[in-house]
């Protein structure tokens, strides 16, 4: 499944979208370091026109959680 969110992660982490799913997280993905996290925040905010709080940013420790956070903010994916 290559949805918009997965594509963003694939771009920013420089990985193949087929290697990514909602369980992808910083612990099982070497590329997801703090610099990547910073780029991801910028890319997600840009793509979905939202602004994330520091609490939300700190909570986003898997693609699935990011999806939930965005859904809570009323973003339809």
């Amino acid at each position: 499944m290559t949805d918009k969110l997965i594509q963003i992660f694939a771009d920013e982490l420089m990985l193949d979208p087929t290697d990514l799913n909602d369980d992808t997280n910083p612990d099982n993905t070497e590329e997801w370091d703090s610099l990547a996290a910073m780029r991801l925040v910028a890319a997600i905010e840009g793509a979905f026109d939202v602004r994330l709080s520091t609490a939300e940013i700190m909570k986003m420790r898997s693609i699935g959680i990011v999806r939930t956070v965005l859904a809570e903010k009323g973003v339809t994916l």
Binding site: S34, M38, S53
Partner: peptide
């Protein structure tokens, strides 16, 4: 400010 606090990196994209 968020980036400064979270990543010690002050500037925007």
């Amino acid at each position: 400010e968020r980036k400064q606090f979270l990543y010690r990196q002050p500037y925007t994209e």
